[in-house]
Nucleic acid binder design. Structure first.
Length: 276
DNA sequence: GCCCAGGAGCCCG
DNA sequence: CGGGCTCATGGG
């Protein structure tokens, strides 16, 4: 039996119960996906599938190559589906270019061609080059010694690394506890009535930080679960009829179930209720 | 053809 | 400080 978000009046409790609901429904997600866990890399018939997840293994990333791949992936997936980003990542790997050393010497133009599938490839090529030169000056071993606040500040100074990418790097590549907010987070919590969708990144992040224990694994799963929920159900055009929050969500789009008996001709299957 | 996808920078009031 | 524009491929 799911605990319904609406039962709790306070924002804090909503955030706690939302996590429990999502986890119960979707189970652990095993983020961040890595190519070495992906079957597509070794099995061409699996094209289109992305299986690089590693549920319940929180030792990942376990080396600097893992961490580097996550950082590059974080840039490649900016405002882009993971499918397209992963293709670009795969392309880099297959051309033996997915390393700090190789990306240091490759030209932005050549790099752009390799990551074409991820979209915005000219911009992203420059961003990756910026990340690489940053890492050459600030090795991962050094970054790991910084306080989260200082680490975030350094990452944000990289041109092409904004709040979400910086926090993704901190949480998923460096395994430090910081909550990643994205468009999905605002959309889901906005529709559920927990926050206003127009709230700023920092506001929403602070809310999560104040509500949850500062645990890397928890932040990891929560963000991944929000993505899972939003990719499949709380999409731009939401699929409320199969959503686990279909009974409690104030913004749900009600779709009348098809009945076996003949409806009146005026009745349509899709009736949209909009509250304003 | 249209809409959307795990954003960020820049410019402008 | 917030809103609007640009960047761009690939899938539904």
């Amino acid at each position: 039996m799911l605990i319904q978000v609406k039962l709790d009046k306070t924002t804090e409790n909503s955030i706690l119960f939302l996590y429990k609901d999502l986890l119960k429904h979707f189970k652990t997600q095993g983020w961040w996906p890595l190519l070495r866990f992906s079957e597509e890399k070794v099995n061409p018939t699996n094209r289109g599938k992305y299986t690089g997840y590693h549920p319940n293994n929180y030792d990942i990333p376990e080396n600097q190559d893992d961490a580097f791949e996550i950082m590059v992936g974080a840039i490649l997936t900016q405002n882009t589906s993971w499918v397209n980003a992963e293709k670009a990542l795969n392309n880099l790997h297959n051309n033996q270019m997915l390393s700090l050393e190789k990306l240091e010497v490759i030209s932005a133009e050549t790099l752009a061609e390799l990551i074409r599938s991820s979209g915005y490839y000219n911009q992203k090529a420059k961003k990756i080059k910026n990340l690489v030169s940053f890492l050459n000056k600030n090795p991962i071993s050094l970054l790991n010694q910084l306080a989260i606040k200082d680490l975030r500040e350094k990452l944000l100074a990289i041109k092409g690394v904004g709040p979400e990418t910086a926090d993704s790097i901190i949480l998923y590549a460096l395994k430090q506890p910081i909550f990643v907010v994205d468009a999905y987070t605002k959309r889901l919590l906005g529709r559920l009535g927990v926050i206003k969708q127009t709230e700023s990144y920092d506001h929403v992040q602070t809310l999560f930080h104040q509500t949850l224990p500062q645990e890397t694994a928890l932040f990891n799963e929560y963000h991944a679960l929000i993505v899972q929920q939003c990719v499949h159900f709380c999409t731009a055009k939401p699929k409320c009829e199969k959503c686990l929050f279909r009974d409690s969500c104030p913004k749900k789009i009600l779709i009348k179930p098809k009945k076996k008996r003949v409806l009146k001709k005026s009745a349509k299957n899709e009736t949209i209720h909009k509250k304003k």
